[in-house]
Simulated scan of single mutants.
Amino acid sequence: MSTDVEHQKRALRAELRERRQLLSDAQRETAASAIAQRLDNLVETLGARSISCFLSSTTEPGTREFVTGAVRRGIRVLLPITRADGLLDWAVATEDDDVVEGLFGLPEPTGEVLGPIAVNDVDLMIIPAAAVDRGGMRMGWGRGYFDKTIGSMERCPPVYAVIYDSEVLDLLPREVHDQPVTGVVTPTQTLLLSHPRH
């Protein structure tokens, strides 16, 4: 049975998706370069040697430039692979990664597949989101993969969501399973919103 919160989220996701589709290629490229710079700085500040990130789709804030650069600098980058059972497998990014279309039409790596627990060793998680509010509550796209992953980790590292500036909102509708993030990275700012749960 649908709740009011689900309806609110569905309407908000539709609006955010539409807003992302209106961006021009030039706007996307500029945002991706700025995000790569900010993520590089975040990795350096945290001293992260092993991270997880996602391969951005066309409409998502770009992460591919950052992933390629991180791999070249010798950082171990795990990329998610969606599974039908709602869990995420992981593959180690390489410089010449081939990309295929995953379960939901999202780009996924083709490297050797590691199981869901591989992510437990990372120093930093960089994840997608539809929006994040100022208290650190994240709203994803409704499939729950990252909520499930973060919620099941014994020692969760800092988790940063990559979004556009207009997607940092004052307050988001939330459900019990929703997981907060440590902060967000947008083209213009890196915000610390809540403290990592160690």
Rank of each mutant, 00 (worst) to 15 (best):
E65Q: 15
A161V: 01
H7Q: 15
H7M: 11
E29K: 12
D98W: 12
L55R: 09
A70M: 04
T45F: 10
H195D: 15
E95G: 15
A70E: 06
R10T: 14
D97S: 15
C156F: 04
A26S: 12
E108R: 05
T59I: 15
T82M: 12
P61H: 02
E95K: 14
T3L: 07
L16E: 05
R76P: 14
E60A: 15
V113N: 07
T186H: 01
N120G: 11
L55M: 08
R17K: 13
M1D: 08
Q21P: 06
T63L: 09
V168T: 04
K9L: 04
R49F: 08
V181W: 00
V162Y: 03
G62P: 00
L12E: 09
A129V: 03
Q8N: 08
V159R: 06
L42G: 13
G69N: 14
V43W: 01
D97Q: 15
A34L: 07
E65P: 08
P157Y: 07
L42W: 02
Y145T: 13
R155D: 12
K9S: 09
T82P: 01
V122A: 09
V43R: 13
D40F: 05
T68L: 13
D98K: 15
E95C: 11
G183W: 00
R76H: 12
R10L: 14
I126L: 13
P180N: 04
L171W: 04
G86R: 05
G86M: 02
R10V: 08
D4A: 14
L193R: 01
A118S: 05
